[in-house]
């Protein structure tokens, strides 16, 4: 079965995030790669401060996402629980024969890919209170000793199936089914706002969002 119907048509109207009901409220939007993306919520300084001093969360559902299946070097080892940087994205191992590709990884050298961009939503959670925010709705262990940067955990997030990627020391990416988009946005907002956080636009994330091209040492 082809998943072409899920991809954003070139020249068509820009795609809307499955979280738009919550994340687009009060937002300044801009078009990126065929998607309407939240650039900011009109208070760049406040958003930057929130992610620096407490926690900020951003709708990143426009990030390319795909499932890679088959064999090959890109799949990696799920037992290690670490994502591998590939291009401007990550390859996140699910099983020895399947991986989730997040971001612009480029085409894998082998295996079959299925585009999941439109069927999965994504929220980035960044800032010193990011772990505490996640701990309020997710039982996955995010301590650095257990889940270092680039750690990847499939599991229950707010009682729904999802994935958690630690993109940096204080930066996490939640990935979940698109149908849960509005619910997940509300869950994260409920948890984060009690810790002094606020939603932020892509502009406020820029330095905190991971730079996957950086080399990662996993044997530290």
């Amino acid at each position: 079965m082809s998943a072409g119907f899920l991809t954003v048509a070139a020249g068509g109207p820009p795609a809307r995030s499955p979280l738009a009901e919550g994340s687009h409220r009060g937002a300044e939007l801009e078009e990126r790669d065929g998607w309407m993306v939240v650039a900011s919520y009109g208070d760049a300084e406040g958003e930057s401060r929130a992610r620096r001093e407490a926690v900020g969360w951003a709708d990143l559902s426009h990030l390319p996402k795909a499932e890679l299946s088959g064999a090959g070097t890109w799949i990696g080892s799920p037992a290690e629980g670490l994502a591998t940087p590939r291009g401007d994205g990550w390859s996140c191992p699910l099983t020895p024969r399947r991986a989730l590709l997040v971001g612009d990884t480029g085409a894998p050298p082998e295996g079959a890919t299925l585009d999941l961009t439109s069927s999965l939503g994504a929220i980035s959670i960044v800032g010193p209170e990011a772990r505490e925010t996640i701990a309020r709705f997710c039982a996955l262990d995010t301590r650095a000793a257990v889940m270092p940067p680039f750690g990847f955990r499939p599991g229950s997030i707010a009682r729904t199936p999802g994935y958690l990627l630690r993109a940096g020391e204080e930066a996490f990416l939640l990935i979940f089914g698109a149908a849960y988009g509005a619910y997940m946005w509300e869950v994260v907002a409920d948890a984060g706002s009690r810790l002094g956080g606020r939603p932020v636009g892509a502009a406020a994330l820029t330095p905190a969002l991971p730079a996957p091209r950086q080399e990662v040492t996993t044997d530290a």
Partner: peptide, 8 residues
């Protein structure tokens, strides 16, 4: 079946 995780 790991329905909330790797779906294996």
């Amino acid at each position: 079946y790991h329905r909330s995780g790797c779906r294996a």
